[in-house]
Design a protein around this nucleic acid. Sequence first.
RNA 1: GCUAGUGUGGCGCAGUUGGUAGCGCAAUUGAUUCGUAAUCAAUAGGCCGAGGGUUCAAGUCCCUUCACUAGCUCCA
Length: 644
Amino acid sequence: MINITLRDDVKAFENGTSLLDVAKSISEGLARVALSATVDGSVCGLDFVPKKDCVVNFLTFDDEDGRRTYRHTTSHILAQAVKRLFPSAKLAIGPAIDDGFYYDFDFENPITNNDLEKIEAEMKKIIKEDLPLERFELPRAEALKLMEEKGEAYKVELINDLPEDAVISFYKQGDFTDLCAGPHLLSTGKIKAIKLQYTAGAYWRGNENNKMLTRIYGTAFPKKAELDEYIERLEEAKKRDHNKLGRELEIFTTVDSIGQGLPILLPKGAKIIQILQRFVEDHEDKNGWVRTKTPYMAKSDLYKISGHWDHYKDGMFVMGDEETDKEVFALRPMTCPFQYQAYLNRMRSYRDLPLRYGETSTLFRNEASGEMHGLIRVRQFTISEGHLMCRPDQLEEEFKNCLEMAIYMLKTLGLYEDVSYRFSQWDPDDKGKYIGTEEQWNEAQDTMAKILDHLEIPYKVGVGEAAFYGPKLDIQIKNVFGKEDTLITIQIDQMLAEKFGMEYIDKDGTKKNPYIIHRTSIGCYERTLALLIEKYAGAFPAWLAPTQVKILPISDNYLDYADKLYAALKEKGFRIELDDRSEKIGYKIREAQLEKVPYMIIAGEKEMNEGTVSVRSRKNGDLGTMTIDEFMIMLSKEIEDKVI
RNA sequence: GCUAGUGUGGCGCAGUUGGUAGCGCAAUUGAUUCGUAAUCAAUAGGCCGAGGGUUCAAGUCCCUUCACUAGCUCCA
């Protein structure tokens, strides 16, 4: 007998009982919704037969691993459909991802959207055929033989790269067999609602030197209604796309003759960035930061010391040619080596530390042409940059302060609930990308890990995501398409201080290199603006809104009164506009509403006689009548408190 | 940079097998002086991203290039 613990309850089963039978013994309902299960913590298919006492937890579509099982099986159905329609296509890999799945193929000829429809139709046929998925294992030599016979070169490569002791498993469904660790659903008929979404290129094994394969993305749900709702949600999210909304609301634009990744910030966009910049600089200064203002470019000599010339040259705009020109300049891609010169201006004592240098810094990075995206990835951007030089005993406290400042900014902007932490480490298998020795990297990462653990930061590790000079704590955020970008980064650097000969005289009279924290408190303004547009769908909180109040006179007869109101608001520094066109009030309200202005004040005969205004909020509609002073007090408080 | 796709007046779109550009909204002008999401009418606006080519004839076909979109790689 095998004892199986199901949540709190322990039950005994015959030897040879599968998890599906276990589920059935509990209830038919569970057997219907269970997709896979964890057995002592590892995910298994329902065909798994426990051989010893264990703890089983059934997974449904509500569990992440359950969803993954469901969608992974769907990716196999996709592969089967593709092989039926395009027998010459080669299979690469096909995992489940957060919201669906994909499968990479090497097609003989490119496929079209029309093909995608055909493939989806074939998938539906396979689902209807309700083919059982059968798992089997093969020794390495036989596994290789099977894949070679089928001409699956990519699978052969995958098998060859598996560790010696790995179990090599396959899943077979009807005429289709795939190398796969599983687990899977028991049959293709379990899949209910599917949708192939789009195709994209993807390099084999994620390496740009390898062949580019065709990746087909899709998703699957247990109910048609859930699929429809998901697609509807995606469509809704796209309406918030900053790249569309930002242009419609005249926040920014781009011009072909200026070039890619070089957006024009229009008055509204420039205003929001000015507000953010003042907010950030004031807050930093209050927290002990001092400002530097350093050049936008430098001779190649500087970048040779910092390592940029060897490790980042492709990412820089270089002016001139070392072969022919006496001096070669490059626009700065980072502020670090420039701010270090401020530190180096004189000899430092341990008493001088920490030194906190902030700069609102414009940077230039020659991104590959396919990388640019609205305001999120650009070639010129301005970042709230800063470098903090400190002693080892100050490192943790200062790191914490930098982090707290970033969190304060994110909370104030209302973005904090949307971010996640990533501990970006180096890739020991790709040492050429980094400066420093393995010992230095291990030490830097250990130091950072200790601090992060001590501060109880819930992070994910990103191998190979580090800067070339040190590990980072990245604060990540997703855009409306679900694509993740780094908003804020805080880095610990031990290497550049040494390279630049930055020192301080310690208590004992010896010279030491300071620790350097590279950090930003709000990230780059363009990217932050993009995410704010998406967060608020263009309807910015009053403290950020480029126009806070729009005055709408009912007719031309009240223009004089409207002018008085305008002057009163302007005098107090509110950002206001006056709509003095001879339009009907409904029309003016509609336009102000579409421009997403937080407040409208309506002035007609009644208000003029009473000396009041009628206030309409973008969010809550008509707020009734009040005096202009009452309105200004209300709005001032909202702005002061940075209500979001 | 790579894969796939897109590019027609400010915006959203039409433009059939190549025959010489249209619609809605916005804009402008005039009338209307209006009470919480669209007043009526008239007018103007485009060498169809750019540069070549094929053709009697190109928005429609071919080539090159630029920009935009999604994804990959890279990254704040």
